[in-house]
Every structure is written in structure tokens, then in C-alpha cells.
Amino acid sequence: MSDPEPIDELTDKLGIDDTDTRREARWELVDRGENAVEPLIEELEADDLKTKKDAAWVLGKVEDPRAIEPLVELFGDDSVSVRKKAARALLKIGEEALPAMVEQARSGDPRRQKIALWFLPDFEDDSIGDVLFEALDSEDPLVRRNAVRAIGLLDVDDAVDHLLDAIKDDDWRVRQWAAYSLGLISRKTGATRALLRAVNDESVHVQYAAIVALGDNGRKSALSRLFTKLRGDDMILKVAAVKALGNIGSRKAVKPLIELYESGDDYIRSEVVMALGRIGGAREIYDILVDAAESEGVHDAAIHALGLLDTKRARKLIEKFDE
């Protein structure tokens, strides 16, 4: 058996154009474990982006705490892809890397804060609410956006009050994620009112997020706003409203959805029959699903919707149309 290749020769192969050679070198360095950590840390300072990303990837696989601080230093790198690779490596290292991530979130440097706040939810530690709330005071809208996103994903204590403030932010990206986050964590009346207002936000991105959130929350108080979106011209918002109505599951939505089915193209009709399948219960739904099952462009969606109904009649129709 030949002697193992020296570590410095393996690190020299990081970042080269030959993809197969790079891959083999990375995995060989992973196998070398702690013996490769110091040489890999040196490679984090390379000028070549691919070399830095390869080294960060291997360090994440090795999971050695010695790499935490050097990886954190990459949060200041000019390359977004390098910063993301470093953050993912820190996630692999695990809980020992959390204090360093928190420090970056509090650093006051927007570049470092943005990457830390984006990845902090992946540590699944809901005790860092104060860190996230502090970031909401940043002058950088993307720092605020990432903090709002993290608040929703982690469902930290006192989240709703902060999100209700964030949904009034001057920047649409912050408002958008505030709406998504409220949909994830809250069925409180105040949150619903804020989302209903956001359905008419000046930004279509915020409108979309609010529609999705109302559907996720299953709020029947949103029905009239969603019916209005069914009659609108924006196809993306219209489809979002259809899906939200399906999630809410109110039979009051059946008639407006059938009207949309009768006037829509195959794309919108497919979305409507899926929503009707989630609502279920109404006799007229079966007539629409039979019509859809007989239509080539909507057939598959209709069969899936019948499966969602899961009734004796629906099962017989599936057998009939799947023959």
C-alpha cells in the first residue's frame, strides 16, 4: 500500500479546476480529521474563492472547534458565497459555534450581521430573542429583514409585538418577512388585523406574504379580502388567494372558487380544484372535479383533489377516471 498523500499536497488541490480531483482531495482531508485542521485554516486566507470555500466545507465536515474563529472571520469576506459557506460550516460544528454567531449578529457590521442572522435560526435556540430584537434597530433594512425572519422561524418569546412593529417598516422586504413570520407563529387578533391591512400593501411582495400568512393561520375573517384578490388582475396574487382559501377550508369560498374555475385557464383551474379538494364537503365540488377530471389539462389536479376528499364517492370517481 502506498503512503498517504501529504496534507499540504491535498490542500494544494483545493480550488483547482479539475472537479473530480478537488472532490477527492476534500474527502481525503475530511478523513485526515484533526490533523488537517491547521493547514485548512491557513487556506481560509487564500485569494482564490474556490479554495476558501473548499477549505470551509472540509472544516465543517471535520467539526473541530479550532475552526470557529477563522470561519467567523470569513463573515467579512467580499464574496457572499464564501460567507455562506463559512456559516454552513459553523452550523456543522454545532452548539459550540453559537456564541460566535451571536457575537457577529451584535457586531454592528451589517455584512457580518446579515449572514449571522440568516443562519442563526438553524441552531434552533429560541433563547436568543434579545439578540434578534436588537437587530431590528439597525439602519440596514436587510439586517432588519433577517432578524424578522429569524424571529418567526424560532418563535421566540414576545415575538408578536416586535413583528407588529416590523410589518409597518419603511422597507417592503422587512414588511414581507414580518407578514410571513406572523403567519408562522400567531393567531392573535392583532396579528390578523395587521395581516389584513398588509393584503393591500403598496408592495405586491408584501401582499403575497400576507395572503400566504392568512391562509396558514386559517383565518376566516380574511375571506372577503381574499375574494377580492380572486377578481384581481395579478395572477400570482390570485393563485396565492386560491391556495389560502383552500387552507382556510371555509365552504363560503366554494362559490367564488367555482366562478374562477369557469373563467380561468388550465393553470388557474388546476389550483382551484386543489383548493376545492382541501375544502371538501359541498356537493357542487364533485361536479367541478368530474369536469376537471375529464379535461386533459386539469385531470391530474382533479385526481389529486379527489384523493384529498377521501370519500367513498371520491374513490369511485378516481377508479373511473384512472382506468
Rank of each mutant, 00 (worst) to 15 (best):
A87D: 05
G129R: 12
P99M: 01
D155I: 03
A86R: 09
L117T: 04
G152V: 11
D158M: 08
I128N: 08
I128W: 07
L120K: 09
E124Q: 14
R106V: 04
I115E: 04
A97H: 12
P141L: 09
D158G: 05
L132E: 02
G108L: 00
H162W: 13
W118A: 10
D157P: 08
L153A: 13
R106S: 10
V131G: 07
G129I: 13
I93P: 10
R112S: 03
F119K: 00
L164E: 00
R149S: 13
S138R: 02
R149C: 06
A87H: 04
R106M: 13
I93K: 01
P99K: 05
R88H: 12
D125T: 12
D165Q: 13
L136P: 10
G94N: 09
L163D: 11
D140H: 11
G108C: 03
V143Y: 09
V143W: 11
A135T: 09
D130Y: 01
A150G: 10
D109N: 14
A100N: 05
L132S: 02
A166Y: 13
A166K: 11
D165S: 08
I128D: 01
E124S: 13
L136G: 03
V102Y: 03
A147Q: 06
K85L: 01
S127L: 07
A135H: 06
L120R: 07
S127F: 02
I93Y: 04
D140R: 07
K168C: 04
V156Y: 08
V156S: 01
E96Y: 02
G152H: 06
K168V: 01
K92H: 13
L90M: 07
D158P: 02
Q113Y: 07
F119H: 15
P110M: 08
V82E: 01
G152P: 11
R83Y: 12
I167N: 10
R144T: 12
L164W: 10
R144G: 11
L90Q: 05
W118D: 06
E134M: 07
G129M: 12
A159H: 04
K92T: 13
F123C: 01
E134Q: 14
P121K: 03
F119Q: 00
L120Y: 09
I93W: 03
R149K: 14
L90C: 02
R106Y: 06
A100I: 00
